[in-house]
Design a protein around this nucleic acid. Structure first.
Lengths: 190, 190, 190, 190
DNA sequence: CATGAATGAGCATTCATTCAT
DNA sequence: TATGAATGAATGCTCATTCAT
């Protein structure tokens, strides 16, 4: 049911898999998805062969990186959502997701540009997020805390947009706050 | 000093340059920036050699495409800005820019991912837009129509974000309207 | 109708194509089909890129080599067949084909082993040979010079076998003569 | 001198060796000698490590497969040869060897193509066959049942050729009979 | 000046072999 | 001793760029 886990996986193999995912996340973020696979293997301290034993394709590695990211985000969002009532929870989740996905823009763009069909394995984690947000959105709207006409796709698009905006803004904390404030304010009814 | 001059360009050469830019715009948008240069040459109906005569580098071609885009946008924005008073003009420009740059996200991402330094030749056109927006922002804020603390970088980031959001939303007109409405509403003081 | 010729092909391109085919024929024969493509390119005095421009795949190159071989053989066989009456013509063709296809065994084996479907482009030339042999066989049988029950597939198998036998025998001229004599004698009615 | 000795081999080790040889024979025959060693290990139900413990090299495994084949053939030939008088024995052996070595063509070709020097360990079993055939040939010739000039190398080449012919013909029993008939008839004096 | 053939560095991927578990 | 994860050299193929025609 959990997809990625086929067998218990030997201790060292699991360690290498993790090292590879970490290295890939870092290197892709730092140098773009165009980096040679060998670079990633080197960063992970393993040979290329090991990389390809764990991820049969460069594309598969990219997917695994994104899946892990989404899983982390989904978990964080679920935690945050549980702590407050719907409206606040929605806003908190929005902040969290928009903030956490640093650099995701470049990824997603590159993946799409490469004609990669990420959907299959991403559907799982992203479905979790989607459902959570759909629920929160619905309840926040019923509570009158969010614009009534807004749909889930709208919300997701705004999330992607906020993400892109923060990416573009860089580490300027004050600016990030103002930008998020603009979007979150806009979500409220007027 | 006299080597890089922009000679008037013979009629057919100018025509080829235009054909190449059009083809590149279309093909990059349709198939991503990863397309072989030869594909673009073919789409333009010329040989690769001709492409490289006009644009010494693939990167240069990409830049030229974006420059032309920005120039169009800048012109449109200037026109729109002249037609209303500051606050409305700012909102109109925001809409225009966010709408017109369909697919730019993938571009920009890919460029950045490729480690390409677009700045040099883009600074011109984008500076024009920047100045226009800086001016409108300033005056709209003085008129009390836009959040006081918002800076130009904030606004640009929001523009990029809105662009990404619309890209993600696809051609759903109603959704695009709602998303823009959210962001524009958020820009106003509260 | 003639298949391989798509456009007139520029002079130098044609020259390179020929050089590549010659080099490939020689190198494959000398060192087996396992040779790196780069080896062949070097032997032809061109870059790998050129090789792959002419033959989109290593497999395609192999096929082209075999096609040319078969074409040569087919032409020679047709010439020989025209010079005598059916029975003698059949025997002459048999000798010619068995002799000319030195090293073909290794080729064909390797191709089959590689799971390559050579048929498509080979069908043309080999069909020509097949038809010629079918005709000669039929007429030689009617003339009472060849075993009556023998079919075309039988004859082709014997041809392949004779080829293999000669390959195995090496350059010992007397031995080659005796071996061919055995097979040709066996073809006659008894 | 004591390093390469053939220790009796523990029961399970012997079983593994046999499983590997069987698997290799089957897999090589079915998918060609290009199959990854891991495929063979899997088919044998052991790990690659075990495979390489028994056969230090892929080439060594191939050789072992062929050796076993030749041993089987040699034994069969010896049995058949004992049952009749020289001439018939020779023909029976010829049939047997030609028939039994189905698929050997691809093997031998691939081995040769790979530049593998099979001789060392094959000389043993093949020497047995060679001697048997040499003896039979000699006696059959003295009995006037086989062409006088024919040498042992000629006979071996014809054997390889017959093998190739049968391989090419496939399972068509009647055809196989006719083809062998042709060659065997050719062997007789005329 | 346009063309498209030639170039070759670069990259993803495979696979025989080794070695930690 | 068996296992299968790790290794990395080797290979087929691509594509930006150059240059002969």
């Amino acid at each position: 049911m959990s997809g990625t886990q086929d067998r218990p996986l030997r201790a060292d193999a699991a360690r290498n898999r993790a090292k590879l995912l970490d290295a890939a996340t870092a290197v892709f973020a730092a140098r773009g998805v165009g980096v040679p696979t060998e670079e990633i293997a080197r960063a992970a301290g393993v040979g290329v062969g090991t990389l390809f034993r764990h991820f049969p394709t460069k594309e598969a590695l990219l997917e695994a990186v994104m899946v892990r990211r989404l899983e982390t985000i989904a978990a964080g969002a679920a935690r945050v959502a549980a702590e407050s009532e719907p409206a606040d929870a929605l806003f908190a989740c929005f902040r969290l997701i928009a903030e956490q996905s640093v650099g995701k823009t470049a990824f997603a763009g590159a993946l799409a540009a490469a004609g990669i069909d990420v959907h299959t394995s991403l559907r799982g984690p992203s479905a979790a997020i989607r459902e959570l947000l759909a629920d929160l959105l619905h309840r926040a709207q019923r509570a009158g805390a969010v614009r009534p006409g807004l749909t889930l796709p709208d919300l997701l698009a705004l999330l992607v947009g906020a993400n892109a905006a923060l990416d573009q803004l860089g580490p300027d904390a004050a600016g990030r706050g103002r930008v998020l404030e603009v979007v979150l304010t806009g979500l409220r009814p007027h």
